[in-house]
Design a protein around this nucleic acid. Structure first.
Lengths: 221, 221
DNA sequence: TTTACTTATAGTCAGAATGACCATATATTA
DNA sequence: TAATATATGGTCATTCTGACTATAAGTAAA
């Protein structure tokens, strides 16, 4: 018996939703799209879509992220499947949530087919979202907070070359706390995760800081 | 538009598989069932089954675990959705994997409807399993190893009252390493997770150890 | 009944990590 | 030149960690 379904047709009971974090000016942001059509038209939502029969769930997440934002080759990780029977109206849909961390400055947002708008929102000023997307976002944010405490992540949120203060501000934004500058830089120094670019910051009205880059040999997600 | 599908009919594209760890005599075990029917008859597999339209994915996992093992009210957590397009033969099925830690002694295994056998296997002596179940098991085991390093879990694997050495042997089995007895007990003492039952071990041919129980007020999974 | 053996339980000590501060350096701007 | 911002480096007491030692309390064998 062959699978009688065309590879490009969608699995009606399964969708993908992406929790995409960005970082800019010391603020942690989240990427949302405004639906252009259907029952949720005019409402904000996590970028997502349908899985087809021909692709893996991971590939579907990558495809959808790329088609909605132009972003590819990034740290994309499965979060959790959300499967409450009433989470989606009209029919039963289980969604697999993914999350990604991207550098906001590196990409310009291009709303996809079914979206009339795509925009970054401060993670603390998120509007009401469709279905259970606020819950998914909450789960993703907690996951990020938990993860950042145990392993070195978040470098994708910064430009390729960054100062230690920028990195610290990122951690402060994620963890919603203040960190001691001296202790933070000592800890990062010992981790040997960063490579000094031997360059200085430019166009700042104070002493210029050294620029660092992430040593990709050390930690591959 | 109402959902035209009966709540008890299954979502054909979505299944559940459970990675259930047990512990006995210092060995970490995994629960497997032997399929009685279908294309995988006679082969070992993770206990699993189909999600229906009427229940949440979490509820489906609980129901299946209970129906396959008699176990309920335990630490049951979603692991990951496995969604390779070719992971399941004949048709496209995405599976949501769960994992659970149970005390082997507390339950007697009763093979369910579609299983001819259910048995504990040493986690290091697992036979070839159907589909991608070996991969799922591998993922679950790594997840457990990672998790046990960062938060206090695994108490469900032990009897209600246990000695510190039993707990240490559990950690050693999970992490595949030897731990220093003195340091281990010092660390656990500081965590204030355990309550001394004021009882002693019985029927051992050496000095009896104090029995402890897990303080459920401290850490609720 | 003494001795050997097994596990329980407690303590020591040096090195690493942590958190709260302090001090100085290097840049810009008033 | 002074005021200011941030960068960068260091101190110090406390806690955590890993390796190791010592003693206690039982059973079992000689």
């Amino acid at each position: 018996m062959e699978n009688p379904v065309h590879p490009d047709s969608i699995i009606e009971a399964l969708s993908i939703d992406c929790v995409i974090f960005g970082f800019k000016d010391g603020r942690l942001d989240i990427l949302l799209v405004k639906h252009a059509e259907g029952i949720s038209a005019g409402k904000w939502a996590l970028p997502g879509g349908w899985i087809t029969y021909g692709e893996s769930v991971d590939d579907a997440a990558k495809r959808l992220l790329k088609s909605l934002t132009g972003i590819s080759d990034i740290y994309l990780e499965q979060l959790k499947a959300f499967g409450d029977p009433n989470r989606y109206p009209l029919k039963r849909v289980v969604t697999v949530a993914y999350y990604a961390l991207v550098n906001e400055e590196s990409y310009s947002l291009i709303p996809g087919f079914t979206a009339s708008d795509a925009q970054w929102f401060n993670v603390h000023e998120v509007p009401e979202l469709i279905y259970d997307h606020n819950q998914i976002l909450e789960f993703g944010y907690n996951h990020l907070k938990h993860k950042v405490r145990h392993e070195p992540i978040g470098f994708n949120l910064l430009p390729a070359k960054f100062t230690l203060l920028q990195l610290q501000e990122l951690y402060e934004a994620i963890l919603e706390t203040r960190l001691d500058k001296s202790n933070f830089r000592r800890k990062l120094g010992k981790m040997k995760l960063l490579i000094n670019c031997k360059e200085k910051q430019k166009d700042v009205s104070h002493r210029a800081a050294a620029l660092f880059k992430f040593d990709k040999r050390i930690y591959v997600p």
